[in-house]
Amino acid sequence: MLKLVLTGVWVCAVTLGSVYFSMQYASAPVMSEADADRRASEEYIPGEIITVPVIKEGAVQGYFLAKLSFSATKEGIAKLHAPLRQVVTDELYDMLVGSKFVDLADTGSFDLPTFKVAVKDGLNKKLGNEVITEVLVEQLEYLTKDDVERVANSQNRPYQKPVPVVDKNGNVAADKIPEGAVKATSSSH
């Protein structure tokens, strides 16, 4: 018993020592003064989920779901004539409705870095100034029209009859309870 207690104390001492020394030698990443000034002049703007229809050949082919957040200059945000979230939503609709960002034939060709740069450039062009400094993607999904219909129809699925259980002799065992289950149930009471 004494060996077990001493082993526990030894393990605790080693653990605490390793945590202490790792904290002593760990250091925060060094940020240059220019980076610190830039970060102090920026503000994080959380995004909201928007659903943009993907239109091809005059019909809706699917839906592009996006939740984008932004890093923007405080000075630029103060000069805006409309709230940034509404401007972002408007620009994303302008960019994505009827665009080639989502190719239905080859969804694997989507280029996220290009998309982020295009959103940033499009927003800054619309705002008339370098307001957006970074685009952060929180959620990005594409649902085909068939995916949406499949989910919608699964809630209205008609009741399906249960499949009967057949025992090894080919008899339908719908009303039979195996003997082992009865004994196990009755013995537990």
Rank of each mutant, 00 (worst) to 15 (best):
P158N: 08
L92F: 06
L143V: 06
V117G: 07
L136C: 02
S71I: 01
Y159T: 11
E130V: 14
V117W: 05
G128S: 10
F101P: 06
D111E: 12
N124Q: 12
L80Y: 01
D111V: 07
V119N: 01
I50F: 07
V131S: 07
D90L: 13
I50Q: 09
V102A: 03
Y93A: 08
M95K: 08
A59L: 04
L92Q: 07
T73G: 04
S69L: 07
T133E: 11
V137G: 06
P83D: 12
G76H: 00
D111Q: 12
A152H: 10
K74R: 14
V135N: 09
V102Q: 02
M95P: 05
E91L: 15
F64H: 14
E57S: 15
S99I: 04
E149Y: 11
A66W: 01
T89W: 02
A59H: 06
A59C: 02
K100V: 02
K67G: 01
G98R: 12
D90R: 15
L143D: 13
D121V: 09
K161R: 13
S109Y: 00
S154E: 13
R85S: 08
T133I: 02
V117A: 15
L96H: 00
Q86A: 06
P158F: 03
V135I: 11
E130C: 05
L92D: 03
Q61D: 07
T89N: 12
V151A: 15
Y93V: 12
E141K: 11
E91N: 14
M95S: 08
G122R: 13
K161C: 04
I77H: 00
G128Y: 11
N153A: 14
V54L: 06
V102P: 00
M95E: 10
Y159S: 09
Q86M: 10
V119G: 04
V88N: 02
D111K: 11
L68S: 01
K67A: 09
I132V: 12
E138A: 13
S69K: 05
L68G: 03
P158G: 05
A66S: 15
L84R: 04
K145V: 02
P158V: 03
D147L: 10
V52G: 02
D121A: 14
F115H: 03
L136K: 13
V54Q: 02
K116A: 12
S69H: 03
G128L: 12
Q160R: 10
E141Y: 05
K161F: 12
E57V: 04
S71T: 00
S71Q: 01
E149G: 00
L136W: 05
Q61K: 11
T107A: 04
P53S: 06
Q155W: 09
L104R: 06
V97E: 14
D103G: 00
V97G: 10
P83I: 05
I49A: 15
N129E: 15
R85K: 11
G76I: 01
R157N: 10
Q86S: 11
L65T: 01
A152I: 11
L104N: 07
D103I: 01
P158Q: 08
K100Y: 04
L127M: 15
R85E: 12
K116Q: 15
T73Y: 04
A118F: 03
Y63N: 12
V151M: 13
G58S: 03
L68M: 12
L143S: 09
F64I: 05
G108D: 14
A118H: 06
K79I: 07
I49W: 07
L136Q: 07
Q86H: 10
K120A: 09
